[in-house]
Simulated assay, not measured.
Amino acid sequence: MSSRRKSIPWIHRWSRPIIAGIATLGLLNTGYLTATKWFGGAAACPTSGCQQVLSSTYAEVFGLPLSLFGFLAYAGMLALALIPYAVSPEKDKPLRVELENWTWLFLFLGATAMLVFSGYLMYIMAAKFIAVSGWGGVCYYCVASALFALAMFVLTLIGREWEDSGQLVFSGLIVAMVTLVGTLGIYNLGNASSTDGSSETTSAFATTTTSGPSEIALAKHLTDTGAKMYGAYWCPHCIDQKKLFGKEAAAQMPYVECDPAGPNSQSGICQSKGIKGYPTWEINGQMVSGTQSLQKLAELSGYQGPQDFKN
């Protein structure tokens, strides 16, 4: 009697190494973002979207960078994918099989949770950043992480034969619901606290220079003539612009906050004006982008008062 050994699909043989490779890419992605956040750098990005998203309140959880939690999640997926390889099938096949079975379940549950969480973040990016800045509001690091999560989820489904698909679906739905409820709870709590204490949220971006009479007079003139400065609380060029005015004058500037997560946000106005970069000045019907000297603002607005500006 002859027996034919059942062939194993290539995806079943290579799914774990592929998941491990994707998790490694996720580690590099989130590790880079965590390092730039902690060491005060700016993530390299072809648009301003990365900085917009990564500097918003959505990029922090419990006062820590969201990317740090992503790093830990990818590290967990990498470990789960590689654990069975620590046991040789020739030396202890039953243990190897047992490790493969329970790690597959946790790989699936972990990938499900990461996919749901990433999906929520993609919704936030589309609704609150792309809707305001167009495709300039895309965070490519965030998109990459979402694609990594999707790829790992698909691989956990097709990377092996599941004996009880009904139980798998039920477990996945439970994890998805818990993840979604937890995510909404965390961000709603975070948004509430940032709304109640917006001065604390933006304290790191506060203007520290002082104003002279000329700066205050120019700020009042700009307000009286209907000028507007469109910006975002995290924008370094906006901070530089406010420093030129000084703390007292900046408080009287005709400033419009465009970041949906910023204090007193008026993102709808920024969207209707087609604002693409910060700061953008609207003076006498003319749009001027970038940090402007106070002399230039005085010239554009027709200011005739004292111009012995301090900064």
Rank of each mutant, 00 (worst) to 15 (best):
residue 285 G to L: 09
residue 222 L to P: 02
residue 114 M to W: 00
residue 228 K to I: 01
residue 212 G to W: 03
residue 302 G to L: 03
residue 110 G to R: 01
residue 297 L to Q: 06
residue 14 W to F: 13
residue 141 Y to A: 12
residue 251 A to N: 01
residue 38 W to N: 08
residue 17 P to H: 09
residue 208 T to D: 09
residue 219 A to P: 00
residue 203 S to V: 09
residue 164 D to Y: 10
residue 76 G to C: 00
residue 80 L to F: 02
residue 30 T to I: 02
residue 118 S to V: 05
residue 294 L to A: 06
residue 209 T to L: 11
residue 221 H to L: 07
residue 232 A to R: 08
residue 254 P to G: 05
residue 156 T to P: 00
residue 255 Y to N: 06
residue 1 M to C: 12
residue 252 Q to A: 14
residue 147 L to S: 14
residue 167 Q to G: 15
residue 95 L to I: 10
residue 75 A to S: 13
residue 200 E to D: 14
residue 286 Q to C: 03
residue 310 K to R: 15
residue 122 M to L: 13
residue 86 A to W: 11
residue 218 L to S: 00
residue 7 S to Y: 09
residue 141 Y to H: 10
residue 75 A to K: 01
residue 57 T to C: 03
residue 230 Y to E: 10
residue 90 E to M: 12
residue 165 S to A: 14
residue 165 S to I: 15
residue 264 N to C: 05
residue 23 A to Q: 11
residue 127 A to Y: 07
residue 169 V to G: 03
residue 225 T to I: 14
residue 82 L to A: 07
residue 183 T to D: 01
residue 16 R to I: 03
residue 183 T to Y: 01
residue 130 I to K: 03
residue 163 E to Q: 14
residue 56 S to H: 07
residue 293 S to Q: 08
residue 20 A to H: 11
residue 26 G to L: 04
residue 78 L to G: 13
residue 189 L to D: 15
residue 244 L to R: 13
residue 17 P to C: 09
residue 66 L to A: 15
residue 66 L to K: 13
residue 148 F to G: 06
residue 118 S to H: 07
residue 296 K to R: 15
residue 294 L to D: 06
residue 238 C to G: 08
residue 15 S to F: 12
residue 202 T to V: 15
residue 35 A to Y: 15
residue 223 T to E: 12
residue 198 S to R: 13
residue 210 T to A: 12
residue 218 L to T: 03
residue 294 L to P: 05
residue 240 D to C: 02
residue 39 F to E: 07
residue 94 P to Q: 06
residue 204 A to V: 11
residue 294 L to M: 10
residue 108 F to L: 05
residue 304 Q to D: 11
residue 270 C to I: 07
residue 158 I to F: 15
residue 228 K to G: 01
residue 112 T to K: 00
residue 118 S to Q: 11
residue 273 K to N: 10
residue 24 T to L: 15
residue 137 G to D: 06
residue 299 E to F: 02
residue 297 L to C: 06
residue 279 P to W: 08
residue 289 S to L: 08
residue 41 G to I: 00
residue 224 D to R: 13
residue 243 K to G: 10
residue 74 Y to W: 11
residue 259 D to K: 05
residue 125 M to L: 13
residue 197 G to A: 15
residue 29 N to E: 11
